[in-house]
Simulated scan of single mutants.
Amino acid sequence: MGIYERKQREKKQRREEILNAARKVFSHKGFNTATIEEIALEAELSPGTLYLYFKNKEELHTTLSIEILKYLADEIQKVNSQDISVEDKVEKFYDVFIDLYDYDSDILINLFHLQSGETLHNISDDVLEQIKIYSTMAHGAIIDVVKEGIAQGIFIDEHPAALADILWASYAGIVLWVDSKRFLNNQKDFVKPTLKTAFKIISKGLRKE
């Protein structure tokens, strides 16, 4: 292995170490309270070194959100490629969404905030481009399933992108709104049962009478 290849490998490894440290600190302290200095300490690096890899705290947190978004896009595409009915595919979307929430609900919530907040203005063009790529992949895979259902005469004949938006927006809205109830009662998980009910309603609403 040459010098350049070794340096690239070391750079990639250090970047992963920073992300792992950031995940721990964000999970423990939350985004607003966590600092670059604390993340650097967890990663056993200087704050200046972190800035060589990430523009700011927002970009670091956004990069963790991109990992979840990429996973979501991959899993939805896997569902789309299965030889099962469109109704079963929509039901499997529920499983994917629940798995995503279980993996890291805090990062997932940040992802939803990203898509409607000002943070997108504070990140680099490269990170923004990654968000666009994986968002398009995930959304496109959902649209493909909806199109399939419409073509088969199973789903209502409405614009596929609009129907996909309703499914995605329902997921995001429920997670953001119902998760906020943890401030009132942190002993109960409201998100999963509410999502299950929502998917029953959405699945029923997609079908032709």
Score class of each variant (00 low, 15 high):
Asp88Cys: 09
Ser85Pro: 03
Lys24Ile: 12
Trp168Glu: 10
Ile68Ala: 14
His61Ile: 08
Ser105Tyr: 06
Phe155Gln: 01
Arg15Tyr: 04
Asn122Thr: 12
Leu52Phe: 08
Trp177Gln: 12
Tyr103Ser: 15
Val25Leu: 06
Ala198Gln: 02
His61Thr: 10
Glu10Val: 04
Thr136His: 12
Glu87Gly: 07
Ser27Phe: 03
Gly153Glu: 14
Gly205Tyr: 07
Leu195Phe: 11
Gln82Tyr: 08
Val191Arg: 00
Thr35Cys: 01
Leu72Tyr: 08
Leu100Thr: 05
Asp126Phe: 10
Arg182Ala: 12
Ala169Phe: 07
Asn110Asp: 10
Asp83Val: 08
Ser46Tyr: 05
Ile133Cys: 06
Tyr4Met: 11
Leu167Met: 10
Thr63His: 10
Thr33Arg: 13
Thr136Val: 14
Lys196Arg: 15
Asp88Tyr: 05
Ile174Gly: 00
Ala40Leu: 03
Ile156Val: 15
Gly205Cys: 07
Thr136Pro: 08
Val86Ala: 02
Phe54Met: 01
Leu52Cys: 09
Ile174Arg: 01
Thr62Met: 09
Leu60Asn: 02
Ile143Cys: 04
Val178Thr: 10
Phe31His: 05
Ile150Trp: 09
Ala73Ser: 15
Gly140Thr: 07
Leu41Ile: 07
Glu42Gly: 00
Val191Gln: 00
Ile39Val: 11
Glu5Lys: 14
Gly173Ser: 09
Gln115Phe: 14
Met137Asn: 14
Ile174Leu: 09
Glu37Val: 09
Tyr94Lys: 12
Ile68Arg: 12
Gln152Tyr: 10
Ile154Ser: 01
Lys89Val: 03
Ala21Thr: 01
Val191Pro: 01
Ala73Cys: 14
Ala34Met: 01
Asp83Asn: 15
Glu87Asp: 13
Asp144His: 04
Leu72Ala: 11
Gln13Arg: 13
Glu44Trp: 01
Glu75Asn: 15
Glu44Met: 07
Glu67Val: 09
Lys204Leu: 14
Val175Gly: 03
Ser116Asp: 10
Phe190His: 04
Leu167Gly: 00
Tyr71Pro: 00
Leu60Gly: 03
